[in-house]
Amino acid sequence: MNTAPAQPDAPMVQLLTPEGERVRHPDFDVDLDAGELRGLYRDMVLTRGFDGEATALQRQGELGLWPSLLGQEAAQIGSGRALRGDDYVFSTYREHGVAWCRGVSPAAMMSQFRGVDHGGWNPGDTNFHPYTIVIGSHTLHATGYAMGMARDGADSAVVSYFGDGATSQGDVNEAFTFAAVFDAPVVFFCQNNQWAISEPTERQTRVPLYQRAAGFGFPGVRVDGNDVLACLAVTRWALERARAGEGPTLIEAFTYRMGAHTTSDDPTRYRRDEEREEWEAKDPILRLRRHLEALGHADAAWFEQIEAEREALGKRVREEVRAMPDPDTMAMFENVYADGHALVNEERAQFAAYQASFANGEVK
């Protein structure tokens, strides 16, 4: 059985300890009022809630697959709330918390995994690109989009999310090169959850991932990925750099994937239970709850209200997913080519004939 790597000692930005104690950092900080802190807590709880519902729906046969974000809520909500409305996001398939921050509904996130569409939202409405399944390819899309925005004179930035395993992909390194050379207003946000499916980070790199940025000529920062305040502060700083024309930044959010890679994965085959238990003590939601309680910003009644909201959201998500209509089986032949294609037409006819050969579930 593999074990997660003992990461080399590296400075890590932290503003909130696992015990919920507020600490200060000389270069990165953020001051939020009680309402803003409660808002971050609510975002994380609701995101974890509908993420858990999606896992349950997959187990019940309602979804084909689901990649859980369990344990990574702080990295996603903190960075997601740092974005402005005119910024643009290119993500992988696990950034449900960021999608939530951009106004994408949980049902829309799940429709692709139910197989009813190829992406459940219009990116033009949310500035959030549809989930990218191919590992690392979207970092090039993000860099190109950022270069285009800069040429248009837009005062906006792009964030590209990916995992630790993606840093071994050539596409990601090519994106780093283009972004650096052209000072693209892009933030590369790596959620280092320490496992690329069953491969630990030590199989990906011998140095902390954030240090890779130096080789391309732009800054890298490691942040406590279970600290929502630190993720918010560092991402805000990186976005401001990008908007000011100072080029890209690599953020390594050091966190942990509490669940399986996807619902088709069994993490007990490659990692120890003790490792998960160690990270449960660093839970991002519990950390912020302790902070809110210590400040007197939230009482038991308020936490119960958020729990009730989470349960109501889960019920609504279940109803919306189960009510989704089955897709038209012939739709897969549409939009393959803009002007049609003889081979596609032939395949469509063959498939239609095959479908017509069934009557009452039996081949004629």
Rank of each mutant, 00 (worst) to 15 (best):
Q7E: 14
Q7W: 11
D9M: 05
P18V: 03
E19H: 15
R22S: 11
R24M: 08
P26I: 06
P26M: 05
V30W: 06
L32M: 13
A34H: 06
E36W: 00
L37R: 14
Y41F: 15
Y41S: 09
M44R: 07
R48P: 06
E53Y: 03
A54T: 01
E62H: 15
W66Y: 13
W66G: 06
L69G: 09
A75L: 01
A75D: 03
Q76W: 07
I77R: 05
I77F: 06
A82W: 12
Y88S: 08
S91C: 14
H96T: 08
H96W: 04
C101P: 01
S105F: 02
A107N: 04
A107V: 14
A108E: 13
R114L: 04
G119L: 12
T126V: 10
N127D: 09
S137I: 07
A146P: 13
Y161P: 02
F162G: 10
D164A: 03
A166K: 01
T167V: 14
Q169E: 15
V172C: 12
N173Q: 15
A179V: 12
A179Y: 11
F188L: 06
Q191K: 01
Q191N: 04
I197D: 07
S198Y: 01
A213Q: 07
G217C: 12
V221C: 01
G225S: 12
L229P: 02
A230Q: 08
L239A: 04
A244C: 03
A244I: 04
T249M: 06
E252Y: 09
G259I: 10
G259S: 15
D266L: 01
R271Q: 11
E274A: 15
E275T: 15
R276D: 02
E278G: 10
E280C: 10
L288E: 06
H291M: 11
A298F: 00
A298C: 02
A300D: 15
A301S: 11
I306M: 12
E307T: 14
E311W: 00
A312Y: 01
G314A: 13
E319M: 02
R322S: 14
P325A: 14
D326H: 01
M332G: 00
A338M: 11
A349I: 02
Q350H: 03
Q355Y: 01
